[in-house]
């Protein structure tokens, strides 16, 4: 509620902020500045492309997203690629969560061997680049254990992200008040029951925001599997470009598709978070 009729107040009005602060603080100026900066960037790239004689062919892009034939709606190559990316990311995420939970519990187990294994795994994964890990899985472990490029990329993503996810899980578990452990113990619960019924349900609240970030990160890093030619969004984009030479339009479109997916995800989860907050 805002009160505009200051004559109702008996006290003297507070001094106004200085004019410069008022100017930059106003919504109108902010929006104008924002549009101005975006405009300069867009204009800059277009004139730059124009100067190098680039032939923009945006009208040819939609067919790679979707088309309508006699049979109705047809998904284009980019949407098929997107579906593959989502499938790949989702499978990898589920595996990463299971592996991450195992690593987190090992680390929290209090057993020397448990935390040694967990810390060794974490340091190993965290200190090699994702691309090198992918090559390890595809060129070294793949031939040894006989799995194909699709399995290699799922395992790479799962292992890489399980290290980060285990830290999120561990932090979430530790964020639950120690009294909850004691209360669960005092009604005779086993450690397993305490995790399942008391600790993990409460840590979801702490884990949700960083976990969303992790899923977004995973979807983005899944693009790297295009270097071993696994069929997904980035690979399909590359294939289209080698057929059509429309590199600017296609890369812009691919970027937008990734952005749309991750933004929808973030907004969806922040809605969930607000729902969750009510119950607490």
């Amino acid at each position: 509620m805002s009160v505009t009729d200051t004559s109702l107040f008996k006290g003297a009005p507070l001094p106004k902020p200085p004019p410069v602060q008022r100017f930059f603080g106003s919504t109108l100026v902010s929006v104008a500045l924002y549009l101005g900066i975006i405009g300069v960037i867009v204009w800059g790239s277009f004139t730059g492309a124009q100067n190098m004689g680039y032939n923009w062919q945006w009208y040819r892009v939609p067919q790679y997203l979707y088309s309508f034939t006699d049979d109705g709606f047809q998904a284009g190559e980019l949407l098929i690629g997107l579906a593959a990316t989502i499938q790949l990311s989702l499978t990898a995420f589920v595996l990463a969560c299971l592996l991450g939970l195992l690593v987190a519990l090992l680390r929290l187990s209090g057993l020397v061997i448990g935390s040694a294994v967990a810390v060794g795994f974490l340091e190993f994964i965290r200190n090699i680049p994702l691309l090198v890990l992918l090559y390890l899985f595809y060129y070294v472990l793949g031939p040894i254990f006989g799995f194909d490029r699709y399995t290699a990329s799922i395992l790479t993503l799962a292992v890489f992200h399980s290290a980060l996810i285990s830290e999120i899980l561990r932090a979430g578990i530790l964020a639950v008040d120690r009294g909850q452990w004691e209360a669960a113990k005092s009604i005779g619960m086993s450690p397993g029951q305490t995790y399942r019924y008391i600790i993990l349900p409460q840590s979801v609240r702490f884990m949700l925001p960083p976990m969303t970030g992790e899923v977004v990160h995973l979807i983005k890093s899944s693009a790297i599997v295009s270097v071993i030619a696994v069929a997904e969004l980035t690979t399909f984009g590359r294939n289209i470009i080698s057929d059509t030479y429309m590199s600017f339009e296609i890369w812009f479109t691919v970027a937008m598709v990734y952005m749309a997916v991750t933004l929808i995800l973030s907004v969806g989860v922040s809605y969930l978070e607000r729902r969750y907050a009510v119950d607490q």
Binding site: Q180, A183, K185, I187, G188, P201, Q202, Q280
Partner: peptide
């Protein structure tokens, strides 16, 4: 000890109810 804890109840200063 787990069997025994079922015989011995505890009420804490900070209640420690399960908030979820």
């Amino acid at each position: 000890i787990r069997a025994l804890r079922q015989e011995v109840g505890m009420v804490f200063q900070q209640f420690n109810l399960f908030p979820h």
